[in-house]
Simulated assay, not measured.
Amino acid sequence: MRSTRLDLALETGAARLPEAGDILILRPRAGDDLSALPKARLRVVTGFKPDFDWFSRAGLACATTPSPAAAALVCLPRAKAEARALLAAACAALPPGAPVLVDGQKTDGVDSIYKDLRGRVAVGPALSKAHGKIFGFPASDALADWVAVPQQVAGFTTLPGVFSADGPDRGSALLAEVLPPKLPGRVVDLGAGWGYLSHHILLRDGVKELHLVEAEAAALDCAKANITDPRCQFHWADATQWQVPHLAGAVVCNPPFHTGRNADPSLGQAFLKAAARMLAPDGTLWLVCNRHLPYDPVLKAAFHNIEEIGGDAAFRLIRASHPKRR
């Protein structure tokens, strides 16, 4: 869908790019077709490790933060605060007047962003195609107040766009309440976010080593600010692929189940399989998940012992121990 709109914009002249200089592509998603653009000049900017790895394997230069360039394409995310921050970051990396292209789906709020921009910059006409829009505007400092600024929530640092940026989510709070008074020496917080569960893990006796595994670089940066305990090790990684250097006694997990806007239970299922792989033979998974998610078959295939230990109308709390070895 993105490639369809990009091709149309370039073919019709609605989007014009400079003949030289780097072109930043901010927050594309794995699978996005960028072949309409000159590959040698592209610089993918994303803090999401699976997307970073996908574009790196495709032979594109990748970074987690923007660098000076001649033009930019911003691929709008779902979160409006994050979208605004990306637009401000694109402008800050470009010289005044350089082209900033914006592409997004209607379901991700592209119409709202277009309306917001029209009151601030000289935004061009929008082309509609494949349930989305693409348009452009010249870079300026008019969006400086949209720059992502760390915020303090319940004593923790968060950033726009990270999961549960406005405070601890209900599922994590429920899981923190049922963690036992004592945990094994080596623990993994799988999908650690900005560190809420890690904070509670470190309050338990017995923990000597805590691995925070998080795919979103911005969230992991927040976790580093929130958790300064020397027992911690931070890993920017795809949680479904990462493996702890030595098997862990416990994994604590509130796995994601969305890919972009769409629910994707297979993502959470991959987290559960990964947790089983990184646990010692007598290890335990402490899990919170939405009640409607089809996790039971995966848990039964991966663990000998499974017990529901609490929850509420929306969430289940599960303790699964003794992973099965194939």
Rank of each mutant, 00 (worst) to 15 (best):
D32G: 03
L26D: 02
A30S: 15
V45R: 00
L60A: 10
G31W: 11
A20C: 06
A61G: 02
A20T: 15
V45K: 02
D22E: 15
F55K: 05
F52S: 04
K39I: 01
A15M: 10
L26S: 02
A61D: 04
I25T: 01
K49Q: 12
R43H: 11
T46K: 04
T46L: 06
L34E: 06
L34M: 05
R16H: 08
C62I: 02
A20P: 00
D32N: 07
F52G: 03
T46V: 05
K39W: 00
E19I: 00
R57A: 14
A61S: 13
C62Y: 06
A61Y: 00
L60F: 15
G21S: 10
D33F: 00
G31H: 11
R27E: 15
L17C: 08
P18I: 00
P28Y: 10
G59H: 07
A58Y: 01
A15D: 00
P50S: 04
L37D: 07
R29C: 09
L37T: 04
A20D: 14
R27K: 13
E19N: 08
R41A: 14
L24W: 11
G31K: 10
G31R: 13
R29E: 14
S35N: 05
I25H: 01
F48H: 14
S56W: 11
L26H: 02
I25N: 01
R43E: 10
L42S: 07
S56E: 15
I25Q: 03
G21H: 11
R43N: 08
I23M: 14
D32Y: 05
D33N: 14
W54L: 03
